[in-house]
Nucleic acid binder design. Structure first.
Lengths: 109, 109
DNA sequence: GGAGAATATGTCAGACTTGACATCTACGCA
DNA sequence: TGCGTAGATGTCAAGTCTGACATATTCTCC
């Protein structure tokens, strides 16, 4: 993990605190974040494919535009549960989920 | 979905209510439950492989024996996040997660 | 360069999840 | 039978997540 990646994550709203705390981020935390980002990308792509706005998708899923934005940004306030449920409600299959998880996350520059 | 499966799920603590409500369970809900059960099985198998008791694993993960039991039972009070985090903390890789998700759930008898 | 649509960000009350504890059941063994 | 260990189940205060709303920013045409 490096500075570039740190910037990406902080930009996405993860409160990583001091460098010390940052270095203390466990592998598990990092893996969870990456996993969420993969699902977040999937939500955005599925929405695009359907040519829906965030507002429309929010209505469709019984939620709001702002939460769609947070989901797609991988905001820390969004759980894996919510991401998975949303994808499934958009009609994705378990197979699709697995495909998205298998797709490697963007490497830091 | 059939009566056998329903019995399995209710046994596991899912409050499915009347048949009407049960039939109203959406595909998304069912998919989420199956997914959780797959992860739950994975937790139990990983723990067995390490020859740990639920108490030991609980201590290891900073949690309790009772939560380990609930996790392994796929209890409704357990989130996908918790299951995933637990597996990762046990040293599982993203690849492992995917393998477990890809493994088909037990079919109703 | 301004209007309107789409998306992003901040906040919060209410809902849900968590670790912890107490208690209960099931099994093995002497 | 009684005891010790492992696992299951119920409950709850404290913590986290959710949908909703308000507001801000970015994008896209003209």
């Amino acid at each position: 993990m490096n500075a570039e990646k740190r910037r990406r994550l902080e930009k996405a709203g993860w409160k990583l605190g001091s460098t010390k705390e940052f270095l203390g981020m466990t592998d598990e935390e990092e893996a969870v974040i990456d996993l969420k980002l993969a699902l977040a990308r999937a939500v955005r792509e599925e929405r695009s494919k359907r040519k829906l706005t965030q507002s429309q998708l929010g209505r469709l899923l019984g939620s709001s535009q702002s939460r769609m934005a947070k989901m797609e940004a991988g905001d820390p306030s969004v759980s894996i549960d919510l991401l998975v449920r949303s994808l499934l409600r958009m009609g994705a299959s378990r197979r699709d989920l697995i495909r998205w998880l298998a797709r490697p996350g963007r490497k830091a520059a």
